[in-house]
Simulated scan of single mutants.
Amino acid sequence: MEAIKQLILATAPEAVLEEKALLTVTVAPDDLRALATALKNDPASRFDFLIQLTGVDEGETFSVVYLMTSSDDMSRQLVVKTYTADRENPVLPTVSDIWGTALLNEREVFGFLGIRFIDHPDMRHLFLTERWKGYPLRKDYDASREANPVDVTSYPMSDHTETWVKGKEGIQHEKIQLFDEDDYVLNIGPQHPATHGVLHFRTALDGEIIKKIDVNCGYIHRGIEKLSEGLTYPQILHFTDRLDYLSAHINRHALCMCVEKAAGIEVTDRVDVIRTIMDELTRVTSHLLSWATMCMDMGALTAFIYGMRDREKIMDIFEETTGGRLIQNYNVIGGVMADLHPDFQRKVKAFIPYMREKLKEYHQLYTGNVIAVNRMKGVGILRKETAISYA
């Protein structure tokens, strides 16, 4: 990391470096873009993967924290922080043209903390409506029902993006039209038969080619961050089960580890092994459902039935030990809710060779299928660099 420290100080001499669990760099807003560009483009560092971008209300200041790594060596991670003391009109420079994933991350921070990112092409709320009053993750937020009463009125969606641009005369507000007048725009969603996991895409089409998509994520926001502010750690564990119900056990495991690390709680080796096995089984069930539903969407109903059939075997294993199939509520702070069912080891050992044989069946059934190949080959190709930037 010495070469990286030298690069940081050469680019931003006033930066403050702290040796924490991860090297943490605090940099003034005026130096942020130069440092971010250097860290991403320098061959020795190549921090091309922005893992996370979050905003924090620290009382007197707002901070934005950037956790980054390199796709060449993901064990090498770095934290960069910047800040603003202006609570009335907080602004910071965008990094959305450096890391594509910041396009949505910065919109989320704007909606919840009110920090505007200069030169970001679309500073609309990502989850909240444009009529929402206040910024929910600020410490002085008014959470009363009177501030934001329930509104069941159906409002038309905006056809413009909002942007704040830095020019010779300072920061200026501009509106940019989303679609051209002659665009054919198709609405996809937000209706969904299960009413969860829904999105709304406004999609501009040129024949079968997608020209542009405007994403509305507000239908999936559950307010978990705000709810957690008033609850204890054990009380918020169940929220993580519902962040991604196909990875409920894994998400809950991650939160337990965060609390355990902060509190200095050590779990036994047996707990580590149980959690890891459960995580891996969860991952297999998630992949099976993803593969099965993708096949079904392309018309391969037989493949869907096969995938669901094999997923049920893991669901049965989960149910015996945890009492749950989709949502297990199994991990707790310091351990797991109960020991493994007496039949657990036998059934897992039987499932492993069974699944290996079924993967061959899946491959024979679907991989070379002419319908699948024709629908996917050469469609939606991304350069490696673009995929990493938006990951």
Rank of each mutant, 00 (worst) to 15 (best):
Y184L: 02
A204R: 00
Y141D: 08
R145A: 11
P353Y: 10
D180G: 11
T322H: 05
D72Q: 06
I265L: 11
G223Q: 05
D140Y: 01
F304N: 10
F62N: 11
N216L: 00
G334L: 04
A147N: 11
D86H: 05
D31G: 13
G134F: 08
L281Y: 08
V185E: 01
P121V: 03
E58P: 02
H287Y: 13
A204I: 09
L137M: 09
L22R: 10
A12W: 10
E2G: 01
M294R: 11
L340G: 07
G368H: 10
A85P: 12
K360T: 11
H253M: 15
I327H: 12
V56P: 01
F112A: 02
M123D: 03
E229M: 06
P93D: 12
L288P: 10
S290C: 13
Y83G: 03
Q191L: 02
D42V: 10
I8N: 10
T101A: 14
N251C: 14
G323N: 13
D97W: 03
F344N: 04
T101M: 03
D214K: 05
Q52S: 14
E361F: 12
A28Q: 13
A248R: 11
G324S: 09
E58T: 14
F47V: 00
G59C: 06
V215Q: 02
T293S: 13
D180V: 08
L92I: 04
Q77V: 01
Y141I: 05
K360S: 09
V56W: 11
G55I: 12
T195H: 14
R46T: 12
P234N: 07
T203F: 00
S247C: 15
D206P: 01
P93T: 09
V150N: 07
G189W: 00
C217I: 04
K175W: 00
I176E: 02
E18F: 07
V25C: 12
E260W: 05
V27M: 05
C256A: 08
V267Q: 00
Y66P: 05
L289W: 08
E106H: 06
L128W: 02
I118F: 01
F110G: 00
N89P: 06
Y155W: 12
H238E: 12
R252K: 12
S286T: 14
G100M: 02
D310P: 02
F239T: 06
W291V: 15
M257R: 13
I305A: 15
E146D: 10
M298T: 09
